[in-house]
Computed example of a mutant assay.
Amino acid sequence: MTGKQQRVVPEGTQAIYDHYHFAPAIRVGDMIWISGQVGIDENFVAGEDMEQQARFAFEAIRKTLAVAGAGLKDVVELMTFHTDLRGEMEDFTKIKDAFFPKDFPCWTALGVSQLAAPEYKVEIRVVAVVGSGA
């Protein structure tokens, strides 16, 4: 991989790229930056609760990393945005820990007043380094 930017647009996300004008991820060399992922399913329907939304978001991250040539083990940083940081942190952490059961990445959690749609409870962005989690 060269130092040039490579847009990563997984199958099923081209419409988002075209309509909202942002890449789901960008890879430069061994670094991957994934745009914030919200808790929606493949039909763009939000999960019913925090656990389901967190699971949907982490699955989208896993899929995007795979297309970019990496895996969850290569994640070095999580940044999460929560509309109810204190009220739903336990539910979120349970799902996060299922995806990252050991060798935890850095993590910053922020409480926010709103996300892109009123039903969204969490948005997750990550930075990964290909091959770093081997």
Score class of each variant (00 low, 15 high):
residue 80 T to H: 00
residue 105 P to A: 12
residue 20 Y to K: 07
residue 48 E to V: 13
residue 82 H to A: 06
residue 86 R to A: 15
residue 1 M to K: 09
residue 130 V to I: 15
residue 30 D to P: 04
residue 100 F to C: 11
residue 119 E to L: 09
residue 115 L to A: 08
residue 130 V to E: 04
residue 4 K to T: 13
residue 131 G to N: 09
residue 79 M to I: 14
residue 78 L to C: 11
residue 79 M to F: 09
residue 78 L to I: 15
residue 106 C to D: 14
residue 124 I to E: 01
residue 18 D to G: 02
residue 10 P to D: 04
residue 47 G to M: 12
residue 20 Y to Q: 06
residue 34 I to E: 05
residue 88 E to V: 10
residue 116 A to Y: 10
residue 31 M to N: 06
residue 64 T to R: 01
residue 80 T to E: 09
residue 68 A to S: 08
residue 111 G to Q: 02
residue 30 D to L: 12
residue 57 A to Q: 01
residue 28 V to W: 07
residue 40 I to M: 13
residue 127 V to S: 03
residue 13 T to E: 11
residue 113 S to W: 10
residue 81 F to G: 00
residue 116 A to W: 08
residue 63 K to R: 07
residue 74 D to S: 08
residue 111 G to N: 01
residue 1 M to R: 02
residue 120 Y to N: 04
residue 7 R to N: 12
residue 92 F to I: 05
residue 96 K to G: 01
residue 9 V to D: 03
residue 98 A to L: 12
residue 93 T to M: 15
residue 4 K to D: 11
residue 130 V to N: 06
residue 63 K to T: 07
residue 6 Q to N: 05
residue 100 F to W: 13
residue 107 W to C: 14
residue 95 I to R: 01
residue 123 E to M: 07
residue 98 A to K: 07
residue 90 E to Y: 12
residue 25 A to E: 02
residue 75 V to L: 09
residue 48 E to W: 08
residue 26 I to G: 03
residue 48 E to A: 15
residue 75 V to G: 05
residue 100 F to D: 07
residue 59 E to I: 06
residue 59 E to C: 03
residue 1 M to S: 11
residue 5 Q to P: 03
residue 53 Q to Y: 09
residue 109 A to V: 09
residue 126 V to E: 01
residue 17 Y to N: 02
residue 115 L to Q: 02
residue 108 T to S: 13
residue 43 N to S: 08
residue 34 I to D: 03
residue 109 A to E: 07
residue 13 T to V: 08
residue 20 Y to E: 07
residue 133 G to Q: 05
residue 77 E to L: 14
residue 127 V to C: 06
residue 66 A to G: 02
residue 34 I to H: 02
residue 67 V to G: 03
residue 4 K to M: 14
residue 110 L to R: 11
residue 13 T to L: 14
residue 92 F to T: 03
residue 134 A to F: 15
residue 10 P to N: 01
residue 47 G to I: 14
residue 93 T to Y: 08
residue 15 A to G: 06
residue 45 V to N: 10
residue 65 L to K: 02
residue 38 V to Q: 09
residue 44 F to Y: 13
residue 52 Q to C: 05
residue 57 A to V: 04
residue 24 P to E: 08
residue 129 V to F: 13
residue 39 G to I: 13
residue 7 R to V: 12
residue 34 I to T: 06
residue 120 Y to Q: 07
residue 86 R to I: 15
residue 94 K to S: 11
residue 52 Q to L: 09
residue 15 A to T: 10
residue 79 M to S: 11
residue 39 G to W: 09
residue 14 Q to M: 15
residue 81 F to T: 01
residue 49 D to S: 04
residue 101 P to C: 15
residue 35 S to G: 03
residue 120 Y to M: 13
residue 118 P to F: 15
residue 47 G to T: 06
residue 23 A to D: 12
residue 58 F to V: 02
